[in-house]
Design a protein around this nucleic acid. Sequence first.
DNA 1: GAGCGCTCTAAGCGCTTGCTCAGGTTCGGG
DNA 2: CCCGAACCTGAGCAAGCGCTTAGAGCGCTC
Lengths: 207, 207
Amino acid sequence: MSTAEETDGENTPWSEVTPEAARRLLVAAVEAFAERGYHATTTRDIAGRAGMSPAALYIHYKTKEELLHRISRIGHDRALRLLETAADSGGTPSDRLADAVRSFVRWHAERHTTARVVQYELEALGDGHRAEIVALRRKSDAAVRRIISEGVRAGEFDVPDVPGTTLAVLSLCIDVARWFNAQGSRTPEEVGTLYADLVLRMVGAQK
Amino acid sequence: MSTAEETDGENTPWSEVTPEAARRLLVAAVEAFAERGYHATTTRDIAGRAGMSPAALYIHYKTKEELLHRISRIGHDRALRLLETAADSGGTPSDRLADAVRSFVRWHAERHTTARVVQYELEALGDGHRAEIVALRRKSDAAVRRIISEGVRAGEFDVPDVPGTTLAVLSLCIDVARWFNAQGSRTPEEVGTLYADLVLRMVGAQK
DNA sequence: GAGCGCTCTAAGCGCTTGCTCAGGTTCGGG
DNA sequence: CCCGAACCTGAGCAAGCGCTTAGAGCGCTC
C-alpha cells in the first residue's frame, strides 16, 4: 500500500535528511539548482517551493552554500557506493564493468535532477567543501580504474591507455545528467544497457 | 614574426568581432563565464578584465545576454563546421568518423574555456536565442549520424542503435570541455587521438 | 497553567546587481 | 579651426540579493 516514495532506505532519496522541513527545503533546492543553476537560484525561490518563508531556510541551514554541500555530499556518496559495489562484486571484470556502468548511468538518468546539481555545480562550493567532494570523486575514479586494470591483467580487456580510458568511461556516464530528459523516448534502464554495451566495446572486452 | 594570435582566419578566434574594444570585452566575458558561470559573472567584472568601465559594455552590446549569445553562436558555428568538414571529406566512414572526433575533441580541449561556455551555458540564453542555437546543435547531431549510418550501410560498422550511439559519441566529446585542464598531462592532440580510437571501437569498426 | 524550546514569519538591513545617462575626450574631414 | 560622430567614463537608479532580527504560535514538561 506504500508508494516508492514512502518506503525508506536506498530507494528513497533524502531519507537521511531530517526533520521533514529540512528535507522539503533540500528537495526544493535540488529542483531549483537543477533548473536554473546555483547562482541563478534565490533563497526566496527555494523557500517558496517548499511552502515556507525565506527566513525558515536559515533555521535548518547556515547558508545557501551549505544546502548545496549537503546535496552534493549525499549524491556523491550514493554514486560512489554504486561504483564500489559493482567493483567489489564477484564475477568477471566484464560483468563488473557492465554492472558499474549500468547502475551509474541509471542513477544519472533516473535522478538526473539531482545528478545535474551534483556534477555541474562543484565550482559553487566553498573551498573546504569542494576539497571534500573532490576526494570522493577520486575514489570513484579509482573504483572504475581498478575494474579496468584487472580486466587487462586477466587478458579480458585490450586497453592501451588505462587512465585515459577510465576518464572517458566516467565522462561518458556523467554527461548523461546533462542531456537526459524524462520526456524523451529512452528509459533510464535502456540507456544503462546501451552504455554498458558501448563501454565493453571501448575496453575491447572478449565476447 | 607573427605569433599565432596575430595571424587571421581560422586559427585566431574572435577575429570576426570588431571593433577591437568589442572583441576585448567578448574575450573577457568568455574567461569570466568559463571560470564562474554566466550568472555569477557581473558586468563590472567583464568590463574590468577588458580594462574599461561598466558602462562601456553597453556601447557594444545591448545586454549581458547578447554577449553570451554572440559567444555561443560563434562557438557553435565553429564546432558545426569541424564536424561537417569531416563528414563531407572523402575517405571511408572510419576515416571520416575518426577525423570528426579528433578535430571536435581537439577544439574542446584547446579552446576549453570557450567550449565550456558554449556547452554549459545554454540555459542562460533567452528563448529566441536558445532556439537558434538548438537548431545548430541538431545539425551537429545530423552530421555525426550521417557518418555512422553510412558506415553501417557499407558494412564497416556494427551499430545496433544508431541514434543512441550518435548521442553517446557527441556526449563523450562534449564532456571534454568539462574536465580538460591545460595544466594536465595530456595535450589536446593526444586526447583527440585517444578518443578517435575509443569511438571507432564503440562503432565496431573493422580494423 | 506557567515556563520553555523549537519552528516559523513579517519586516527589513546593507549591499550588489544589470543597466542608464549626461557629459567629456578623441579624431578624421571640411 | 571647428564640427560631428564614435567612444568612453563617473555617478547613480531601481530592483533584487543573502541573510538577520524581533516576536508569534505551538506542543511539551512539571
